[in-house]
Nucleic acid binder design. Structure first.
Lengths: 228, 228
DNA sequence: CGATTGCTTGACCCCCATCAATCCTCGTGG
DNA sequence: CCACGAGGATTGATGGGGGTCAAGCAATCG
């Protein structure tokens, strides 16, 4: 099994603040799992008892609403942590994590992380910063959900997908989402999302080839997201 | 000026984990302000450079959306902190805080808190827990905003106001919000909120006397919030 | 006691949820 | 290699929720 010390994604998250000693301790007790596209990493109500560190792949983090529809809260890229919230509050999972592309994740058991949090102020400060940043993002999302139209939210989502996950030479977004997932991110019905995507396509703001989406007119998208 | 050591609200937040020494240091450098109803404590973009501890009163925490409407993210009661997010990320304020009832707040300058965060693991763990809990609440709010109807959100809000701020002998809610604030919490137009309040009144689920609201039929409200 | 602000109700219309039908795509097995 | 079935994608039709404008009404304040 590969070691944390040699893992590239370690540089991307709070683990970078750990000492060599702390890191090798974690490396010794971590376990690695492969999660195929569509499989769930954990579900609402699960006792996670640790945190996951995504070493490859992308997953969606979502929650079921009372009316039975899934709301995607955010998308998690490689290098990110998953499950810290539950760990810190000693709580069951509030959200569900499902692989969108095939993933490789490392699981670090609870006690190991808690020890480091209590003993390494730099590490706990870094986790605190991550959490604070997540909170800011969540607050901004609340405002968008409450105040923006579906069209605005779709435009904004496309821009943020491009920013977070990038695109290839043909300017196709590197992330592949189903129409349903797109709808569940912006909080609308699948048909509404599809309709707006076609509208964007007709107006040559984006192009659609199967699951490939490419942004043809970013400035226009930005204007739409702002409400014009 | 009164001292933190004798302040009752200290027991309600993370300050309770501080040692006597740390607390008296904070007590020595804090400043106290009175904020009248309607006045703002800080605005989006402000450099706060510290945290506020609410010793009395209630305030709303909100953000302007692109279309010029205010979205209230949450309400803050006495005993809560304000501004930790900005402090931890070394960022300007992302939100605006406005007094809803007259307030007394204590301001603790940045460096003082940062020192304690780095040196007292119990304190930083407590702040981390608060932040994690806020994040959970924010996530749940995102789902509600995206998936529930305005009617459901109004019912839910009334229940949570009752839970968080309580009510007096006549079962009138202790918190007094304008119709506009109510609308800005649930993310709708003022007229829509008013219309639904009248509907609840007609069905004798609540009663309205000026700014006094009392919940007459809590079970019914819970059903409405769940979508029946 | 004007005047300003907040509250309430009516009218109108558009966005979007929902239901339904069709088309497309892709994996599977014959 | 093709047929076929199943799930996803697309488009149409329809109705209701809720945003917006406008006009009275109540209340608060200098």
């Amino acid at each position: 099994m590969s070691k944390c010390e040699q893992c590239i994604v370690r540089q991307l998250n709070s683990l970078k603040t750990l000492t060599a000693k702390e890191l090798s301790k974690i490396s010794a007790c971590k376990t690695t799992r492969i999660i195929k596209k569509g499989e769930t990493l954990f579900d609402e109500g699960d006792h996670i008892n640790g945190v996951f560190c995504i070493s490859a792949g992308i997953c969606k983090v979502s929650k079921m609403s009372a009316n039975g529809r899934e709301q995607i809260i955010h998308l998690v890229n490689k290098g990110d942590f998953l499950g810290e919230r539950s760990l810190i509050n000693d709580d069951v999972a509030n959200l569900k994590a499902t692989a969108i592309h095939d993933m490789e994740v490392c699981f670090i058991p609870r006690d190991e992380i808690i020890d480091d949090l209590k003993q390494n102020p730099e590490f706990s400060m870094s986790v605190l910063k991550d959490m604070a940043m997540s909170l800011k993002n969540a607050h901004n999302l609340i405002v968008d959900m409450a105040q923006k139209t579906v069209k605005q939210r779709l435009a904004e989502m496309l821009l943020s997908l491009d920013k977070k996950f990038g695109h290839n030479r043909d300017s196709n977004l590197d992330i592949h989402l189903s129409r349903e997932d797109i709808a569940n991110i912006i909080g609308t019905a699948t048909e509404s999302a599809i309709r707006l995507l076609s509208e964007f396509k007709r107006e040559e703001i984006i192009s659609l080839k199967g699951k490939n989406i490419s942004l043809l007119n970013v400035p226009k998208l930005k204007k739409i997201a702002q409400g014009f």
